[in-house]
Amino acid sequence: MRAATHPFVFTGCVELRQALGLLALDERELLDRVREVPPDSIFFHTHGYFLRHRPVTTAYGNDFARWAAVEAHDLVLAERLAVVEPFSFPTLDGLREELVTILHDHLRGVDAVVRLPFARGFHFQQSHVVEVPLGPHVSTLAEFRDGLAAVDSSAIYLHMVEARARRGRRSGDFGEWLSSSLDMPALAAAIERIDAHLTTLERVRGRVLYLVEAALQEGGA
């Protein structure tokens, strides 16, 4: 079985949330705050939703869309925000600009916005991700499959989402390792194409495992 030039280390994470003390009590304030909050807050409320999203929850795609639907009861805005695909923006400022444009365009057609009480406002947060290396290093595709099947789901998030969106590794850690250390560019490309939006970490784990298993069956490594 082919051995990697560099081993892969599965790394889980714990997300520490921090309140920024900034809130929006209506949609106009949401627009103003989205313009000014740090990029890490944009990340928390969009990509970070993926880490917190669970199979049993109703998917809104991001915290802004959820707030528009559940608290502001503005389903039009909720739908417009929900389809924003955070993974398609190379920078967080690009993603912020898209959100600002959607809010701005939506508010042009609105005469009055509903003012909400404090507890139902949008409370901006950001997160610090504490990384936790897990288990032994893996060097073959079979070891990679076994490790992936057993790790905490936060490792899927760190390697597939955090690595792409906040660490600048656009292929994600799995694709990068499979391509550069195991010389399996086709498998790496297939994993990169997995649609991680509006799904769960467990489903993403399942899709990666399916592709890896298929490669092993074909004797690809």
Binding site: G12, V14, V130, V132, P133, L134, G135, A150, V151, D152, S153, S154, A155
Partner: peptide
């Protein structure tokens, strides 16, 4: 607990 949670707890405990 969910799968893998106790493993992360043990690894974090090692770090501190």
């Amino acid at each position: 607990a969910p799968q893998g949670t106790v493993d992360i707890l043990e690894r974090l405990a090692d770090r501190v």
